[in-house]
Design a protein around this nucleic acid. Structure first.
Length: 616
RNA sequence: GCCCCCAUAGUAUAGCCUGGAUAGUAUGCGGCCCCGCGAAGGCUGUGGCAGGGGUUCAAAUCCCCUUGGGGGCGCCA
């Protein structure tokens, strides 16, 4: 692996500098200056000579010359290029790599909860939610691959205004339309109800009454609300699972409130002295607040104090959220109870919090990662800072908000972009289901055209996999912080920088191995001499480093980028080298190389959540 | 008004944390390649770090300013 070579070089360089110049520089620091080569024929380059030039009182080229004898190894040859030490991997590296390499990350036993996409249970997912789900799922996959013990959690906000508005519409006798997906139907009712709520004072009063009953746990209203929300969540899960987005457990806001988890969280904050009742002269008289005004993070705000409990005694959303996060991090131990929710397409059970359930251990995590839109940065910071102020420094440190930019629609014929709003209903026509349908049907048309002899079942299976991969890839290829301007054509591209390109590059490899299996009794020497063979090996050898870095920085787009480079290297190899029909030694060597490549790519596809298919 | 994020070819992006040689990739547009393990492919040409200042031997990368885009500043979430 390339990273092992880099470590070898930096370790030796660190020792050499100490010996030759008496300069102590940790090998970890040297490692930063040992990078992939930027020049033709150079695999790894080391720039340490520039860094220490001043201290050593010597020219970079001289320093390089002096330390090079200490860096000797059988894995590479080196050259002094005016201070850069350039390394070129030897044949032994390549043959060893293909012969022995197994990439696997050891389990580290660290529990991490990843929360996504936490969509309100009263409407279908739109492309913005899809982005959340895909980012969350990829990050969970990455952490899983990186050795963490991952819990995939979804928070269901069933006590908010949105649910109350939808419930109001249902209680007035709206009936489900036959043949329509429940979340879609409910979403449409919600848009109507939200409009009426704005227009009519009576409706507003009725909805608010419902919201109060939900919060208090009024038996009839709560049961009806939960029934509605469960149906909606079930419908949303169909969408998510179709896109290979899976979870372990749902946690309902109503359960957090009614199981007294919130109460206990707030009590603890009061005991720690950061949650206080505001005095009569304050604008927040009668409220329970966290005083954040003095904190550096909020110094720009005229009034940073945050209300957690209103004067009328009702808790704010932030209060519930902070208690929830404290529970995740094991700060409060109250047990929520859990029950089975459904069996998922991937064979894993999905659990749900439930007042009548049983104990289960979904909390007590070391790290918490929340995938939430950029617009919620402020409340997320409130939570983090509050935990820190309450003395839970380590927990606050391990609390991470991954914020992602909004998805907007590229409006036809105008430069101006439209925001997606659940309330206004601008998502209609841009629901996740409609997007998937479109993608899959385009894939189907392409496949029907190319492979007329395939059966209809087979065509369907392939177009499903291809359609899904196009969508997943187009959403994950850009960094979460970037705004996503949604464009049908780009999202559904099947060529170049796309999901189907990856699948195709996998299918090609698999077919070679299907045609002629690896001869296990062959014990000749591996040979790799073609440029494209060496390039492919180098690319495969980068996998652990790229993956580790993507895990550390929560950057799934790096995996997408790497997967493309890996496939591109394979396609070049494929065009330049034949595997079958070559002389025995060459053929066996190449088959082994193709196998290593397929394994590495499979790992990438798994992390990206792209279906692995053998035919397309 | 104050604060945060973003700005890389016609378009979409990687690289920025940790400054180094020729800024990587896709698409678009132009050329070439199906006798051959599947052309959803390969090869090749074109074209880019928003503007200004600073730090440095060296800046897409670090610092400051300007401009443009997005978001936030509730007893909403």
């Amino acid at each position: 692996m390339i990273i092992e070579i880099k470590k070898e070089i930096s370790g030796k360089a660190s020792v050499a500098l100490e010996k030759e110049y008496g300069i102590a520089i940790a090998k970890e620091e040297v490692l930063n200056l040992v990078q992939d080569g930027g020049v033709e024929g150079v695999d790894v380059e080391c720039r340490i000579a520039f860094r220490v030039a001043k201290d050593a009182k010597a020219k970079p080229a001289e320093i390089a010359e002096k330390i090079m004898p200490h860096l000797e190894s059988g894995h590479y040859t080196m050259k002094n290029a005016n201070g850069y030490i350039n390394f070129t991997l030897t044949e032994k590296f390549y043959t060893d790599f293909v012969g022995k390499y197994e990439h696997r990350f050891a389990k580290n036993g660290v529990k991490v909860i990843v929360e996504y996409p936490s969509v309100n249970p009263n409407k279908p997912l739109h492309i913005g939610h899809l982005r959340n789900g895909i980012i969350g799922d990829c990050i969970a996959n990455l952490l899983d691959y990186g050795g963490f013990d991952v819990v995939r959690m979804d928070y269901i906000d069933d006590l908010g205004l949105q649910v109350a508005q939808s419930l109001w519409a249902c209680m007035r006798g709206a009936t489900v339309e036959k043949g329509k997906k429940y979340d879609m139907w409910l979403g449409e009712k919600y848009v109507e109800a939200a409009r009426m709520y704005e227009e009519s004072a009576d409706v507003k009063r009725e909805v608010e009454e419902l919201m109060r009953k939900l919060e208090e746990g009024d038996e009839t209203v709560s049961r009806m609300g939960r029934e509605m929300a469960v149906q909606c969540v079930e419908a949303q899960k169909i969408t998510l699972q179709r896109l290979n987005i899976f979870q372990n457990v749902l946690v309902w806001e109503s359960d957090i409130v009614h199981a007294k988890l919130m109460r206990n969280g707030l009590d603890l904050l009061e005991k720690k002295g950061i949650l206080k009742t505001a005095g009569g002269d304050s604008k927040y008289a009668g409220c329970k607040i966290i005083e954040l005004s003095g904190h550096p993070m909020f110094k720009h705000l005229t009034d940073a104090d945050k209300v957690l409990v209103r004067a009328n005694g009702v808790a704010t959303y932030t209060a519930k959220d902070i208690a929830f996060q404290m529970w995740k991090l094991g700060i409060i131990k109250d047990e929520l109870l859990f029950d089975k929710f459904s069996m998922q397409k991937n064979g894993a059970l999905l659990f749900t919090s439930n007042a009548k359930g049983q104990q289960a251990n979904f909390s007590n995590a070391k790290k918490v990662v929340n995938i939430i839109g950029v617009e919620q940065e402020y409340p997320q910071n409130v939570i983090k800072v509050s935990l820190d102020m309450a003395g839970f420094k380590e927990e606050a440190n391990n609390y991470r908000h991954i914020s992602y930019g909004h998805a907007t629609l590229k409006a036809e014929r105008t430069s101006h972009r439209k925001k997606l709003s659940g309330r206004k209903g601008t998502w209609i026509g841009f629901s996740a289901d409609e997007l998937v349908e479109e993608s899959v049907s385009r894939a189907h048309a392409l496949i029907s055209d190319k492979f007329r002899d395939y059966g209809e079942e087979e065509k369907k299976g392939i177009s499903e996999a291809v359609g899904i991969s196009a969508i997943r890839y187009s959403f994950i290829r850009l960094g979460p912080e970037k705004e996503l301007v949604f464009d049908w054509e780009k999202a559904l591209s099947f060529e170049g920088d796309s999901g189907p390109y990856l699948q195709y590059a996998y299918a090609r490899a698999v077919h070679i191995l299907d045609k002629e299996t690896i001869d296990d009794y062959w014990d000749g020497k591996l040979v790799f001499t073609e440029k494209s063979e060496l390039q492919l090996i180098r690319e495969i050898a980068k996998f652990p480093e790229v993956c580790a870095r993507a895990v550390d920085t929560y950057a799934p787009q790096n995996m997408a980028d790497y997967a493309i480079k890996l496939c591109s290297a394979f396609n070049s190899f494929y065009a330049a080298c034949r595997v079958i029909g070559e002389e025995k030694g060459v053929s066996e060597s190449r088959k082994r190389l193709v196998k290593k490549y397929a394994e590495a790519l499979e790992a990438c596809l798994h992390i990206l959540g792209i279906p692995v298919i053998r035919n397309m």
